[in-house]
């Protein structure tokens, strides 16, 4: 019986997150335009874009194979499955011991499907974009994994029901662990913001899709329905990645019993996601240009991963002492 409730919950969450994430990208475009003294598109513009893409003719290149068509669907499916493991102001629907690994795996798998679809188009521009995407993927994830695992380890020391579950983030948080961990927490805020920017590929990290250099790179061959699906999936993924950052670093929620408690917490969570995205996406992409791929990889390993190591060590020391 509970599995049916969970499925209904997943469908509702999917609808909610689709609308919210598209809405945020409308707000984002408006805000960027205002920062540059433009008027900008209406806030609902992403919805019009989506509907138009869905109604357009879809062109399949001659050199494409079956993965070209399957990849967008698989990507969206992975992202929807990921929603069941995402903390959205309350513990994830399928929260179990160790579900953080499933979360990271699915988050990476969505990117991997996109890469596979892009490669399958047979376009050399796509191939360059995909190669850059892989380089970024490998460089950005270790910093995040180290940060998340150390935070979860620290929380599990306070005694939680399910260690290494994303649900445990709502039982205790890292700010309860003492002054030394506060320093680690500030370092981890930097790490997670940098990771988020590289995950959603804005600002410095808008490299695989660099329009000016390699003509849209990854998405060059996609059109019509498939492009619409990919845009939607990327938008949801953006919301999910930000949810992780919010849940790890700023998990404060209100305690209201019953269904209205869930809804209130979801609203608070959405607000926090919008604030984090405003900094990591809107501001960051307005004030910075893109790096070269070598610079970005270098930055992720030497500045971000190193900071993650320092943060994790401080956290461990803070918990032990």
């Amino acid at each position: 019986m509970s599995i049916i409730y969970e499925l209904i919950g997943l469908i509702l969450l999917y609808i909610y997150v689709s609308i919210t994430s598209l809405l945020f990208s409308g707000i984002d475009r408006k805000l960027v335009a205002r920062m540059q003294r433009r008027i900008g598109p209406p806030i609902l513009q992403p919805f019009y874009d989506f509907l138009k893409l869905m109604s357009k003719e879809t062109i399949i290149p001659n050199t494409a194979n079956f993965m070209f068509r399957a990849a967008p669907i698989l990507m969206l499916a992975t992202v929807i499955a990921l929603l069941a493991y995402t903390p959205l102001g309350f513990p994830p629907l399928f929260a179990t011991k160790g579900d953080i690994i499933v979360f990271i795996y699915l988050l990476t798998l969505a990117d991997f499907f996109l890469i596979l679809g892009v490669i399958s188009s047979g376009s050399p521009y796509g191939k360059i974009g995909a190669a850059r995407e892989v380089a970024m993927l490998i460089s950005r994830e270790p910093a995040m994994m180290l940060g998340v695992f150390s935070v979860m380890w620290g929380i599990s020391k306070l005694g939680v029901k399910r260690p290494f579950s994303l649900g445990s983030l709502y039982e205790h948080n890292i700010w309860e662990l003492g002054p030394m961990v506060w320093v680690a927490g500030i370092i981890l805020i930097y790490v997670f913001m940098a990771w988020l920017a590289s995950e959603i590929e804005v600002g410095f990290f808008n490299i695989p899709e660099a329009e000016e250099e390699i003509a849209e790179g990854t998405l060059v061959e996609y059109s019509g329905r498939y492009l619409g699906i990919i845009k939607l999936a990327e938008s949801i993924k953006e919301f999910i990645a930000t949810s992780l950052v919010v849940a790890v670093l700023f998990p404060w929620q209100v305690r209201i019993p019953g269904i209205e408690g869930y809804i209130t917490n979801l609203m608070i969570h959405t607000l926090k996601v919008f604030i984090v995205l405003f900094i990591a996406k809107t501001v960051f992409r307005t004030v910075t240009g893109r790096l070269r791929i070598t610079q970005a990889v270098n930055l992720l390993w030497t500045r971000v991963f190193a900071a993650s190591v320092v943060g994790a060590l401080l956290l461990v020391l803070g918990v032990r002492i």
């Binding site: 047979g122 191939k127 995909a130």
Partner: peptide, 12 residues
């Protein structure tokens, strides 16, 4: 294996 997959799914 990823390398092999990239070859298999590339341009024919």
């Amino acid at each position: 294996y990823v390398r092999v997959l990239f070859t298999f799914f590339g341009r024919p």
